[in-house]
Design a protein around this nucleic acid. Sequence first.
DNA 1: CCAGCTTCATAACACAATGCTATATTGCAC
DNA 2: GTGCAATATAGCATTGTGTTATGAAGCTGG
Lengths: 315, 315
Amino acid sequence: MKLDPRHLEILAAIVDHAGLTEGAEALGKSQPSVSRTLSQLEARIGAPLFQPGRRPLQPTELGRALADQGRAVLKAGQTSSDIVARYLTGHTGLVRVGGTPFFMDGVISGMIALFQQQMSDVRVDQSYGYAAELIEKLRNGTLDLAILPLQQNSVPKDLAFQPILAGLNVIACRRDHPLARKKFVTPGEMGQYSWIAPPADSPLYKDLRRALKNLGAEEFRISFSGGSLASVIEVLSESDSLTVLPYSVVFMMRDRSAITALSLEIGHPEREQGLLMANERDQTPAVRRFRSFVVSQFDSLSRRIAKQQTDRLWR
Amino acid sequence: MKLDPRHLEILAAIVDHAGLTEGAEALGKSQPSVSRTLSQLEARIGAPLFQPGRRPLQPTELGRALADQGRAVLKAGQTSSDIVARYLTGHTGLVRVGGTPFFMDGVISGMIALFQQQMSDVRVDQSYGYAAELIEKLRNGTLDLAILPLQQNSVPKDLAFQPILAGLNVIACRRDHPLARKKFVTPGEMGQYSWIAPPADSPLYKDLRRALKNLGAEEFRISFSGGSLASVIEVLSESDSLTVLPYSVVFMMRDRSAITALSLEIGHPEREQGLLMANERDQTPAVRRFRSFVVSQFDSLSRRIAKQQTDRLWR
DNA sequence: CCAGCTTCATAACACAATGCTATATTGCAC
DNA sequence: GTGCAATATAGCATTGTGTTATGAAGCTGG
């Protein structure tokens, strides 16, 4: 005997509210509707679910047992609704975010931590990669959001790009570095220090080469390479090495580690750090919420950076 | 967002069987049916429940979570079916059975115990009473089955009576009683013994009075009254008292206690022990099953009694 | 990389079930 | 009994389910 779970729900409501009318009210249905459903149910089962001709309505032993099951159905339905509601408001779900390693480690991961203080049920899958791979992953749907520096004119037409920060890279060194205090640094001065090389396929590495070329330094010595941000910062702050880092990374690290940026513009293309994503319409609510969170974080970060710049000018 | 529990069931089936076709099969539905239901569900929620364009079908995190709930619904439905099935086959339910005290205690309760060895989930509510009360209870629906001695012509027309045993009452005494061995007992012989009186409103008491009157003994001495069967048997077997009991009670007690019946017919109306009940059509399956069990038990009991009678003749 | 297979989606339609309002019936209390 | 409140029934519009037939799409093996 296959029973309709909705009928069990209705039975449970009737039993729990001790009456057809009140049960119907609780379910948001009309009294005749639940009355008929109850009749049908009893007819199908072939046994009364309530003591006949007794008011207030009192369930049969069988009715009580089935109402228990109906209660389970009701509960499942309720938690289903909750699950969906949490999902639709972005309080639940999965965000797959990828980006350039140093930026992710230096800037984004902190924001993720902050985000998850509010949205503890949103799972974040972080991955690392550069433009080509990230774009590929966005296209085949294995990534929701890419965070990377991009030139405005090189944004793929099938993807949306939302700038969040000027993509400024700088030369970084330890705070006590001999060059750190100089208002102007010449290429010659840099020549005597060794370099920490970012991964060879990274934009940073290209920027490093280009910068040195622009500054006239054809040759440069590499003392360390292949490390992730933590290693690079460590080596950087314990040696006189130099390296290229996004300015925002240096900025975020300024309190936690003893590094700083040289007062030296390195010429690189006009890029912007930004969020690259597929069609915004099929983003999950969690992704949207995460995205807007990140955007607002960068908004405040930009202001903090701007404020610090003016402070430095005044200094 | 209110979701149809049936949709959750279907979702669970699809997830569990890793496929729409197999899920449909498991549910006993056509593939297009579940396909459309799934589409509807996704449309209403506004989010995909399965990774789009991936085969084998793989659920979204959301889909998985909702499938869990669907599984709960499925389980509730299954146990509901079980509950109904057990009820319909009479393996579950309530049997309210009432009858004359001595017969219930001496004969029926043992059968109830036997019945419940097979039907452990059938609850039996036993009560005591005589014809008038039992009939009243049957009529107002607070009793399913009455077990009592009745003359065929005094069966209420609105009730059904099923005879199960000859309603023979006898005079009982302890097995070592001086009168026990006599083939023929005279009223005079009985006059010297005191009597244990059944409840004053019981048929047995009427029979006792009538019997003694028929036998010519106008006066009789009552030494004990008001006890239930256990007390009566106790007093009976420890004294020379006599009493009136249904023969079947004496028969059932013959191994457990040292009592027996006098070889003496006491004239009483032609009654039969039997089952009195309201319309058989609205009996619950458990009642029917209990009834048929009792009937079969009495069938075998009748045979055992008959056999013992012939044995006694041969002896 | 294409043929062929399997799986899923769509279409069209019959029919059962749900929902409603209006109204009759019934149980209970005074 | 009368009146009140609760439940049942009737009639009708709408939705949903189920079916078969058929089209589209992903996977697999040569």
